[in-house]
Design a protein around this nucleic acid. Structure first.
Lengths: 349, 349
DNA sequence: CTGAAAGCGCTAACAA
DNA sequence: TTGTTAGCGCTTTCAG
């Protein structure tokens, strides 16, 4: 590993000039810059991250805090963010912060969380943080503020912190209204488990909007039409079996709070001998990779784009583009495929 | 951010002692150690990563290089590795290195790859690397060696580098032999796309073992029984439709080179009105989260465990446990579920 | 077991 | 535009 001194000697300039030239500062003559670049190239010189960080206070590294590492959604977000940050020359340091209220979160899990805040996040290894679906208590929020590093939250709400979120209310309204407009009147909803609620308000928000849409349409709500699941295909499958097996209800459509649960719903309907969408329509939320394959109508929330967007915000802040508004909104779009249609008994318009 | 000097003052010792005490070195008296720890605690002191790295040459950071960020398998590996590294106090820096030969890998992609090797990996930001399914050309391998950092490869083979891999040959033999032992004689195989082959020899290895098992059983191989797909559910679905629709062949079992393709096979069979396993048996490889839900018989390769294992190797090397053998082997296990059974026409034993 | 002091490799004033 | 110089905050000899 060649050091800056060698490059300076080879280029016949001072180390300060090498530093400036390689950092792309403007105050270097083109000729010198070329000389330096050639020398650096020849020696295979790359600046030492530690030395540069210590001297400049900048790490060229962004921390990304994710609640789950094995979820399709978060990985899509990560992928989007990664690309932009890489292009900007930033490394990514990954932090795994499972939801605090997670079922079965024992002492070990709490200690891990604690240690992340007390030790890992405080080593000044990164210039900024991207926090995805992060739910914090007051103390944790205080700790984060003390870090004095830009932080942008994606999804969820961090009071007092810069956050971009999907308008879950609008999304759920759109999904429900899509089914209503097709003529459905008995619409079931698969929402998140109570355990999930503690950490993401998302399921509740979506459920409320669903209920509001139903009520607005002049339809009496039936609690039997709402089932909980754990956001997985299997969860959606089981919930749908309950829904379609209950003799007291006869839903002609299911609105699932995620695409994976919606896919589970489609599979359950099939296993029960019901045709989708003839016997039962299904709509999800996400824009999952598999949605197209299953012909699933969904509200796409462009997770990869979300990652790109939040990365761009961070890059802007790091470039000193001033503080952005405290809450921005992410785009979404209804994508109609073959899993939704008018109910059989619908009046032809 | 308190600095070491403050802690030293509060504890009434020198900065050198603080450094030693906090690093857990043995040459500090218990009393002093306690004093220092209390002082550090009170001030909320955490060592600065940059300063510590520069002075000691150690970063407490491991680089993980992944070919894909949106694949279930690699994320499972990452999850396993993450946990161990976190517990050992290491951060993870994530590098995304798409396969060089990827279809449509344009100039931009090549430049990204180049830059990763020339710039990102050379900043000395990490103490060691974990490289998952990494395929390198000679130049790249030379560059990696120049980094003089421990590197353990997981999957694939890096000549001259420490690598742990699954015995793909044994795995594919096991899968095929499972079907043979059930009495199947016309066994189809879904392998990887030619484009995939360039980067992972995995599909080829598995296909060869499949062919060998068939031949060993005294059965004449039929090229029509082998189809390629892209390792996705959709790919497996399409391949299976071809397989089951071809009037020249009558497979009673399908061995897919991945669980996702196997799940696609199950779905395709269903859509064609075939019962699994009555009309057609299906076996995959991986141990996918969804395998249980779909009742898929598979060869589990415990991806999360792979992550843990490779992380442990890296930690051992960093702890100076000496160099390990150049090639180790990962465990695998046949998990029989309901997707495989004897063919209808099989003689009862 | 502890302290003093010399860097680790680079950047950022400040001068020139 | 370029060079000189003083650190950045910590670890690690080397003494004691």
């Amino acid at each position: 590993m060649a050091k800056i001194q060698k490059v300076a000697e080879l280029a016949g300039v001072s180390t300060a000039t090498v530093s400036r030239a390689l950092a792309g500062k403007s105050s270097v003559s083109p000729a010198t810059r070329t000389k330096v670049e050639e020398a650096a190239n020849e020696l295979g010189y790359v600046v030492s991250a530690a030395a540069s960080s210590l001297a400049s206070g900048k790490t060229r590294n962004v921390g990304v805090i994710l609640p789950l590492l094995d979820s399709w959604f978060f990985m899509a977000v990560l992928k989007g963010a990664q690309r932009l940050l890489e292009d900007a020359g930033y490394d990514i340091t990954l932090y795994h912060l499972p939801p605090a209220g997670e079922l079965g979160a024992g002492d070990a899990s709490k200690q891990r969380r604690r240690r992340l805040f007390d030790e890992f996040l405080r080593r000044q290894r990164v210039d900024a943080f991207i926090a995805v679906n992060l739910e914090l208590d007051d103390e944790e929020r205080a700790l984060l503020s003390q870090l004095r590093r830009p932080l942008v939250g994606l999804g969820g709400v961090l009071p007092g912190l810069h956050t971009v979120t999907l308008d879950d209310k609008a999304v759920a309204h759109l999904a429900t209204d899509h089914l209503l407009s097709l003529g459905h009147t008995e619409i079931a909803h698969i929402t998140g488990d109570p355990d999930f609620e503690r950490d993401f308000q998302v399921p509740t928000t979506r459920r409320r909007a669903y209920e509001a849409s139903i009520t607005n349409a002049g339809i009496t709500r039936n609690p039997l039409l709402v089932r909980t699941a754990d956001f997985t295909i299997e969860g959606g499958y089981n919930a749908t079996k309950q829904l379609l097996g209950d003799p007291r209800i006869h839903p002609t459509a299911i609105f699932a709070a995620s695409d994976e649960m919606a896919i589970g719903a489609i599979l359950a309907a099939r296993d029960l001998g019901k045709d989708v969408p003839r016997d039962i329509s299904v709509i999800g939320i996400d824009g999952h990779d598999l949605a197209d394959f299953f012909g699933l109508t969904t509200i796409d929330q462009f997770p990869e784009l979300q990652g790109r967007q939040v990365a761009q915000l961070i890059l802007d802040e790091l470039a000193g583009q001033g503080v952005e508004p405290i809450a921005e909104e992410l785009p979404h779009e209804l994508v109609v495929r073959r899993s939704t249609a008018a109910p059989l008994d619908a009046p032809t318009r």
